[in-house]
Design a protein around this nucleic acid. Structure first.
Length: 490
RNA sequence: GGCGACGUAGCCAAGUGGUAAGGCAGGGGUCUGCAAAACCCCGAUUCCCCGGUUCGAAUCCGGGCGUCGCCUCCA
């Protein structure tokens, strides 16, 4: 593979929420990219919606690396907040135990979804000192005030409040919810530090005992690991307001850099029956059970089958449809796994398609990480490769045995490349293999004997028997095999 | 009500000025003892509707209809 040069690297364009436009990507420091992604508050088991940003950022970070950047990906756990405290007390467990349990589950699922661990996974509870430092700076700069033991950010001190969500700052006052907090000077103000309440986790600070509010932890941790200027900052669109806007104003005020984020990258939400999946609505499809049933690679591929900014409608049918499509890729993978490296050019239009695949794939990802398009290119490559391997070409021109073998080699290389870019195939044997039981092996042998004496009635009877055990018989020139019937696992 | 996004074949989904990707489902073939897999062919004269700009628009502008998200729990 050729090494990416500057021109190629700058070919990447990314949509930025703040400007509402897609524009060429350039990092703050040449050759390096710092990414901060808002992770989860681990108070409940994850649903499919949570997996989307994980998978998307895995692809984004990998593609930036492929284009020659040194990437640092930071994804946090907000392991102290209202929901967590509420849930822990309801269930009668310690906050840290609840957080640890769910965090562990995320990490395990991440692995099954072929997501590489982020470079740094900071926890809010381990960065209280950084948080206190930021709150101190904000108080000093008069961007914050104390009130009844709490510390609030003073929104009026941020002249451009509303910039990120493109919303009128004044109108937001009127839009404040009922139940106004009397401790706040302005309904838009938000808590940086919450005073100590017996039974809740708390830390000592110069402004009294208590715990961090929501939003500060991300500002503090992003600053700790990525400095004052963040190249890419992401999360679900539902975080744009208030979370990211509040984070933006406090970071810019506290660390004195504007803008502190170059590109805001927000993914669309996973919906079901047309509405957003959410933990509080409890309409989320449990991620662990889906991964168990369909396999990590299928769930991952499904999440990448639409562009990351589009909403993605989840249903069992949609996932099954993708599983079937994925089968095409998987079959070619299995059929070419031992192919020799490509040695020479391929004939016909199909040959062009197969040989150009790497460029097409990378170009698709350059354009705002368009994974839907990347998959389209992949499927076209699969079709073209299958045609050549079968000895067919659209031009009707000759396809020699050497061409066919060569096509297998190209297919193998292309699939390896697509796997590296998108994550297609499970890494472990257990996810990879579908061992056929001895019973089925025996029936296959019996059927082979029946077929050899042209007793097709018996052969078909055995095939039905195998089908009843859940396996599909496939006859090929090299003999018969069985594969799990309708098994969508990757 | 305010702000934002979206509306493309039966379903999912790319495409942001140059004449509609890809997948699933469906129909017809080739191959096969028959299947399966694979491959080939078939499907939107058209991109929610109505106007406008342009030589040319799914793509830009205006209006309308519909769906979704956010408006201090949220990936």
């Amino acid at each position: 593979m050729p090494l990416p040069d500057e021109a190629e690297a700058s070919a990447i364009s990314i949509y930025d929420t703040r400007s509402g436009t897609e524009r060429p990507f350039t990092p703050a420091h040449p050759g390096q990219v710092g990414i901060y992604v808002c992770g989860v508050t681990p108070y409940a088991p994850p649903h499919v919606g949570h997996a989307r940003p994980l998978v998307i950022w895995d692809v984004i970070r990998t593609h930036l690396e492929r284009r020659g950047y040194l990437v640092t990906l930071v994804q946090n756990f907000t392991d102290v907040d209202d929901k967590l405290i509420e849930r822990a007390s309801r269930d009668g467990v310690a906050v840290e135990d609840l957080a640890a349990r769910h965090s562990g589950q995320y990490l395990h699922l991440m692995e099954r979804l072929l997501v590489r661990p982020p470079d740094i996974m900071p926890r809010a509870t381990e960065h209280v000192a950084d948080i206190i430092d930021l709150v101190g700076r904000l108080l000093e700069g008069e961007n914050a005030y104390t009130s009844q033991g709490d510390v609030y950010f003073q929104v009026a001190s941020a002249p451009d409040y509303g910039l990120l969500p493109r919303r009128d700052a004044e109108a937001m006052k009127a839009g404040a919810r009922l139940d106004p907090n009397p401790a706040k000077r302005d309904p838009r103000d938000f808590a940086l530090w919450k005073r100590q309440i017996p039974g809740e986790p708390s830390w000592r600070s110069p402004f009294g005992g208590g715990r961090p509010g929501w939003h500060v932890e991300c500002s503090a941790m992003a600053h700790r690991y990525l400095g004052t200027e963040i190249d890419l900052h992401g999360g679900g669109v539902d975080l744009v307001f208030p979370h990211h806007e509040n984070e933006r104003v406090q970071s810019e005020a506290g660390y004195g850099v504007r803008p502190h984020v170059r590109f805001w990258v927000h993914n669309g939400l996973v919906t079901t029956d047309g509405t957003k999946m959410s933990k509080s609505l409890e309409n989320g499809a449990d991620l662990a059970s889906l991964v168990d049933r369909f396999g990590g690679p299928v769930v991952r591929g499904f999440l990448l089958s639409a562009h990351y900014r589009s909403p993605l409608e989840f249903s069992m049918e949609a996932l099954s449809d993708f599983a079937r499509a994925y089968e095409r890729i998987k079959r070619l993978h299995l059929a070419t796994i031992n192919a020799a490296p490509p040695a020479r050019d391929l004939p016909a239009e199909e040959g062009e398609r197969v040989m150009n695949f790497p460029v097409r794939l990378l170009r698709a990802l350059d354009r705002d990480f368009n994974t839907a398009r990347a998959f389209a290119e992949l499927f076209e490559m699969v079709r073209a490769a299958n045609a050549l391997i079968s000895g067919l070409s659209s031009s009707g021109g000759p396809v020699t045995d050497r061409d066919r073998e060569n096509a297998r080699g190209f297919a193998r290389r292309n699939l390896a490349m697509a796997d590296a870019a998108l994550g297609l195939f499970a890494r472990t044997q257990t996810e990879e293999q579908n061992p056929v039981p001895d019973e089925v092996e025996g029936l296959l042998e019996a059927r082979r004997l029946a077929r050899s004496r042209r007793d097709f009635t018996e052969a078909d009877r055995i095939r039905d028997q195998i089908a009843a055990l859940g396996y599909q018989v496939e006859d090929t020139p090299d003999g018969s095999t069985a594969r799990p019937l309708g098994d969508p696992r990757g």
